[in-house]
């Protein structure tokens, strides 16, 4: 199988879906003539023209509003939000309009919209361009949230997102755009709400999202060399969440660490840990640990930035302590 970058995989997904369905169009800043910031959209304006690859002024609320309206009236827009940090600007269009229109219209209107954006720190982009804000939208009923962890995942999830009749927010990790992975030539879709067991193990479960899946896999390799058998699971979508798969693994290993790049407090890790705690309590041999990004604005200083996010070594160290039966945060 050929190896392609995550950028190429997303590009292919968009091109294939735009060829398949002429209602699909792309809208955002710098998506056409101006060139694309992460080289994801190269070649699309040449193939589909400026009526389906629409450059907008720097006005996120405006183009998001246009897209929501277009989706309600029969189009299937893919909105390109250059940085996940800008999601604050489009909260009303996304959370009050797109997320609620189907419900509030009594099912008469759909909003088949995809919001493509990104997350991830350690790119030296400072506090306003390095955030991982997927927890903000996962909190809102009516929005689906996908977190691809590789080129393969990005393509399959993007195609499913475009075909979904509800608003979907996809966060790509901006540090993974050049990461290559095997991606089949033939068409495939990845269903939402089906977790992917990346590695099977019996001693501890590492649940990772987006690029943290790689962090968990590396941690599992470190642990394997010490005789600790870790299972790694990628939920793929956090809304819907494959609770069944996560609980099954938690019951099997009785120890769980949840790793996510959003801020640790009030985030994805807490939500998943809490569900496992509620529904697998009597199978747990250790507290479920959360490992998110530090609760600080992402520093610009590389030395500081690197220690704000979970690392394979850090995850492995926590796993060791859980497996050894150490007292964790208890008195």
């Amino acid at each position: 199988m050929r190896n392609i970058t995550l950028s190429q995989a997303v590009n292919e997904a968009l091109a294939e879906e735009m060829r398949r369905d002429e209602r699909v169009f792309i809208i955002g800043e710098d998506v056409a003539e101006a060139g694309t910031p992460f080289k994801v959209l190269s070649g699309l304006v040449e193939e589909f023209g400026t009526s389906r690859v629409v450059d907008t002024p720097i006005a996120e609320p405006g183009f998001m509003g246009i897209a929501v309206g277009a989706a309600m009236t029969g189009s299937r827009p893919v909105v390109d939000l250059m940085f996940g940090d800008f999601i604050y600007l489009i909260m009303d269009q996304l959370c009050n309009q797109a997320a609620k229109t189907h419900y509030m219209s009594g099912g008469k209107l759909n909003v088949p919209l995809v919001l493509r954006t990104n997350l991830g720190a350690t790119r030296r982009s400072a506090a306003q361009h390095s955030q991982s804000l997927h927890a903000l939208v996962a909190h809102i009923p009516g929005l689906k949230v996908a977190l691809p962890s590789s080129a393969y995942e990005a393509k399959g999830l993007m195609k499913t997102a475009i075909r979904d009749n509800n608003p979907v927010v996809i966060f790509e990790d901006k540090l993974m755009y050049n990461d290559k992975a095997p991606v089949p030539e033939e068409e495939y879709l990845i269903p939402f709400g089906k977790a992917n067991v990346k590695r099977s193990g019996s001693d501890i479960t590492l649940i990772g999202t987006s690029s943290m899946v790689q962090v968990c896999e590396k941690a599992a390799e470190i642990l394997a060399s010490e005789g600790i058998d870790a299972e790694v699971i990628d939920p793929r979508t956090i809304v819907p969440l494959d609770e069944e798969a996560l609980l099954k693994s938690a019951k099997k290993t009785s120890r769980v660490i949840v790793v996510d790049e959003g801020h640790q407090s009030f985030g994805i890790t807490g939500e998943i840990a809490s569900r496992i705690n509620e529904k697998a309590f009597y199978h747990l041999d250790a507290p479920v640990l959360r490992m998110g990004a530090m609760d600080v604005p992402v520093p610009f200083s590389p030395a500081l930035e690197d220690i704000t996010v979970p690392t394979p070594e850090g995850v492995a160290e926590s796993a060791r302590r859980l497996v050894a039966g150490e007292m964790i945060h208890a008195a």
Binding site: S254, F281, Y282, H283, L284, D285, A286, M327, A330
Partner: peptide
């Protein structure tokens, strides 16, 4: 006594 839920069960 401090014990994990699984150990108690």
């Amino acid at each position: 006594i401090l014990a994990s839920p699984k150990a108690r069960r």
